[in-house]
Design a protein around this nucleic acid. Structure first.
Lengths: 337, 337
DNA sequence: CTGTTAGCGCGTTCAA
DNA sequence: TTGAACGCGCTAACAG
């Protein structure tokens, strides 16, 4: 290709990479030759030489979950525009497999890492990462990585509780996720905080933490409902937990929202079609993935830059499960709009 | 690392890669040194030399959709076990962007490609791919690639129609996807076929094709319901289309299943919690991703091997939307089991 | 502004 | 069985 253009390979490289000040004519010649031969530089040879790969790794605990799938979409979308490729690692939540996933990524010379599950602390991350740029998604790890993008978890739950209080409820129960990750911890904190601000008591049997699954939510709701606190409303930390509560209410023949009001974090696309439609906290998970990727690429290009913690805003989408009166047409409009 | 072990780099390479017949002692020495220095061979240097990367590309039209997310999970899971990494490309469905995605993957020396959207024919695929192994997922492209893994599309719809006929329906409508992809085409064919076998007429206004979205399903259902065919049952080619039909039924105050029975392809996790719970065709999408990856890795290791077309079996999950009488407990059991 | 050279870190010759 | 040397394709460094 170089001889074809009648220039050295160095010149060709310069032209193609837009480096140096070369004569327009030379550049044109090179481009022509490159096009003629449909020359495509080898990214792997380039990577070997330059020690960067234009590739970033993304570690998620469970690809098939719609939340992570959306994160992936956002990240991939930005990375594509920025000229990076995405290597995906589905690691589960076990510390060892997450660590192994990150190590593999680093061995493969990714330029940076996006991590959305953090089953160990800053120390181990720092040991693993060295100076490799890293941004956390949906998790906050202080003292490691370049920054993070998370949801306004506490604020979201506060909005839910405040809304229930506004409806006149005083015994507002909470079904939360495990307290070993950022979302779980912050959402519980938001609940406590909001209850306190509304001057409402929080007896021990008014809330319960469990896995992020429908099944666990179902079990937790049964326990709460069987307790002595007799809540008139339940707020949940995720959509799956809300479905569990919904199932529990049905099994106990409790009408929602009349016998028990319900509202949850996470606004899934089928929420308007549930009976009753589910009041929820919405946020833009795709944008969240984009922002994380953007922050990471920033850190790759400017390693010295200060990291920061970014938060995605949340908004309350009132529907019928909380007790708001709403025409069914409004539910349908959301879905067919 | 080589000098540390007191052997040449060639010897080290041989030991680490299990090549050649070297003395056990030498091998042990090398392993020890490798472990001591925590030596990690550079995949990129290796790739430059060997011209393969232990990496495969996966092209999906829309990562955030739960179907593709599950496919990804399955593929990633097998690839991980087999020692391959996964580069993800979210290409949309535009021919040019799909082609560009595949080209990028090839430039990056992936060892093979998994493709789940095929907006052009075998010729272009062959031109794009050269001899690079390729397996199609959820699509069948005869004359290109090494094989494909798809769902028993026609069979699934036949089961749905047969079930409706068994319930005594004779005017069974169909809301299908676009007929520009395998699933859309085969599901429509399954409908026609089943109607014929049941000796039922298919007037033009008894079925309608549209995009794979709730909104489009809603619009299509309204058209069908406004027509002269007055169906007593509707079968849809996807879960989203079924949600559209559900919305349409609600907007027209039609009770499901009494005024209109409903059943669909795709069994989503919330199907048992809809009111009424949705009768659906289930299949294992994660396994589908695994099988595709498995087939691809087979093709990479044995390029001469014959390709084949594999089908994932489907099963009918009868719930209440079709008219089956079922205790609500059964719905709940599914979800909390 | 352009050409020449060297080497990124492996795996694979070829010769000993 | 082992070691030395070469080259995969590119770009950074240096020379002209």
């Amino acid at each position: 290709m170089a001889e074809r253009a009648g220039v050295s390979s160095a010149t060709a490289s310069r032209a193609l990479n837009g480096r140096g000040q070369l004569a327009d004519e030379t550049r044109a010649t090179v481009f022509q030759a490159a096009a003629d031969l449909d020359f495509r530089p080898s990214p792997v040879a380039r990577s070997l030489r330059t020690r960067h790969t234009s590739t970033v790794g993304l570690v998620v605990p469970y690809v098939a979950h719609s939340f992570y799938a959306s994160l992936i979409k956002g990240a991939q979308s930005y990375l594509h525009e920025a000229g990076y490729r995405l290597i995906l690692v589905d690691s589960g939540v076990e510390p060892e497999s997450v660590a192994a996933g990150i190590t593999t990524l680093l061995d493969h010379q990714v330029d940076g890492v996006l991590v959305s599950t953090t089953p160990f602390g800053a120390d181990r991350f720092n040991r693993l990462l060295g100076t490799k740029p890293c941004v956390f998604l949906d998790e906050v790890v202080s003292g490691a990585g370049h920054g993070s993008v998370a949801i306004e978890n506490a604020k979201g739950v506060r909005m839910l509780v405040d809304h229930m209080a506004w409806h006149g409820h005083r015994r507002i129960a909470f079904v939360g996720g495990p307290n070993n990750n950022t979302a779980g911890i912050e959402r519980l904190a938001g609940y406590r905080d909001a209850m306190k601000k509304n001057e409402l008591d929080v007896p021990a049997d008014l809330y319960r933490l469990c896995d992020w699954s429908i099944k666990a939510g179902f079990a937790a709701a049964l326990v709460i409902l069987a307790g002595t606190s007799s809540p008139t409303a339940i707020v949940t930390a995720s959509a799956e937990l809300a479905l569990g509560v919904l199932a529990a209410a049905r099994s106990r023949q409790l009408a929602i929202p009349d016998d028990l009001a319900l509202a949850s974090f996470d606004d899934r696309y089928f929420a308007p079609l549930l009976q009753p439609s589910l009041t929820a906290i919405a946020y833009d998970e795709v944008e969240m993935g984009r922002k994380g990727a953007e922050m990471l690429v920033g850190a790759i290009k400017e390693p010295k830059a200060e990291g920061h913690e970014m938060r995605m805003d949340v908004r309350l989408v009132p529907r019928r499960s909380c007790g708001c009166s709403r025409d069914m047409t409004a539910d349908l409009d959301e879905v067919i709009g």
